[in-house]
Write a protein that binds this DNA or RNA. Sequence first.
DNA 1: ATGAAAGCGCTAACAC
DNA 2: GTGTTAGCGCTTTCAT
Lengths: 332, 332
Amino acid sequence: MELKHQATVTLAEVADAAGVGESTVSRVLRNHGSFSGKTRDRVMAAVERLGYVPNRIAGTLASTASRLVAFVIPSLSNIVFPDVLRGASAVLEENRYQAVFSVTDYDPTKEEALAAAMLAWRPAAVMLAGYEHTEGTVKMLRASGCRIVEMLDVDGDALDLAVGFSNGAAGRESAAFLLKRGYRRMGYVGHDLTRDTRAGKRFAGFCETLATGGAPLADREILAGASSVENGRLGLERLLARTPDLDAVYFSNDDMALGGYFHCLARGIPIPGQLAIFGYNGLDIGRATPQPLSTIRTPRVATGQVAAQLVVTNAPPQVVDLGFELIEGATA
Amino acid sequence: MELKHQATVTLAEVADAAGVGESTVSRVLRNHGSFSGKTRDRVMAAVERLGYVPNRIAGTLASTASRLVAFVIPSLSNIVFPDVLRGASAVLEENRYQAVFSVTDYDPTKEEALAAAMLAWRPAAVMLAGYEHTEGTVKMLRASGCRIVEMLDVDGDALDLAVGFSNGAAGRESAAFLLKRGYRRMGYVGHDLTRDTRAGKRFAGFCETLATGGAPLADREILAGASSVENGRLGLERLLARTPDLDAVYFSNDDMALGGYFHCLARGIPIPGQLAIFGYNGLDIGRATPQPLSTIRTPRVATGQVAAQLVVTNAPPQVVDLGFELIEGATA
DNA sequence: ATGAAAGCGCTAACAC
DNA sequence: GTGTTAGCGCTTTCAT
């Protein structure tokens, strides 16, 4: 059986081959409108025979109804975002939407440029992380008329849709937990907070509750660059060198916390006897370490799922707080 | 200043506002063809004033030259694929290409369906993992006329372009290293190999060299489902319960190996004195553990970068072997 | 240097 | 139930 390996087959050719009109082919293919069973069979046979693949570029242009969903995310190194994409793409695929993405490296200016590039594809929705966008981004997004979903945070004013959880509350709850456990001299190890504003909100919440509880933060070590296990390890080493008598350390996320945990293992520092460790994210790996990591588990995959669901159902503007779960673990 | 918040501005409206023809606006915007500086200024002013965002759907249809690149990847949970995407998206963004993706869950049938859906967007290229595709996928891809890039493996017959490294060689080299270190009674802990065929190739290469070296694989534990730290831990526990006298264990990847490592830490099994551990991938976390993980580092980000580069430069069909690097570490 | 006009491949009225 | 036709918003000859 020969296939056309060259020029692409068009709907018009299928129509000719099936001996029907173009719109009939279109109806059959989209299973929309009415047509007889016999016609459908003739069309499908022609489609099969010619190896026809519909052109959604043309279809989208003609219908002015896009099924592209644009993700403008800060990073792909931090597992948080692949998790969100994973949740979203499952829902989108089921609904015949297509995911498009680009990566901002936590740079709001780059976010603006990439959002602009995305809008040129006339997506049904633009999915972003958090609320901190440039004025230009906001203006552009608003003017575009497409749905906007701000993910992974609910502490702010949503442009349209928002799905996630409160980072401030996560920080406060972490602090409350450590206070309740009796820790009084606490430190913080984090990564670049000016870029990762959600980590900044957690830190602010953490400090706030600590201060209220009468045990203000004793010391902090903030490393330049992205979060990583190595940076967590290095950060804890530096922090302890400066302030050796800390009894607990809060990390900007689980990657960082694991680094701290490894540092303690390597140095023989008893956990949590001498030093408690608390993270954020609830990564699976934290459950398999010799001592399960004390942390807060965030619904990352669910955030993506719900975000996608809201878009495909064209839900009214709203903020969905998915909450989070504190995992006691064994390191605090 | 008022902006049009409603109907989208078209190129024709910009042309009117600037008092020039549509084609002139098009030339200016794409900086292609000739036009006077004065005309350019007039056009740009109109673009600015109206808040015009070009419609790439229409542009792509008109030019029949797509700048979409489609990724059909097995998973987003396994950090390998986000890494590849990260490398690729950086290069694509620089070249004004747009990345589109969908996730197959390691299912070739789903891969076929998703590839078909992708082709409907008329991408410039389709990027896949490995060589194992259904007949239908291959036929469809070939007929599409777009570039095809098979990533993360070079052991097979490339459809068009291929970028990666040899999984078979990685398995063999791992075995050779362990043999050279003097281990003679080795086991394997892996995840579902029928789905992750690249892991299967590593395992096959590993066994081959072990047999040749006169120390055939002593035992294996293969877990259903995806790789994970928890599965690695569980797998090693089971393996040792059955065959306690192993002196080294090869894992299907670093996630699994870390699970094994944690198991040993928890049980107080001396590493590598009593048991050596060897992984695959060279994840950053493996360098921050109390003992650096012995593993093979793979160029995942580079794979994405090179794959994208080949596509944007429209390189001739070829296979690019990026190689890998054995990391001695301290666990073997 | 610039404009007019003919598509790109499809969808969506609107007739029949 | 089915065909005809007019766009969707651009790019691209081809004149001028």
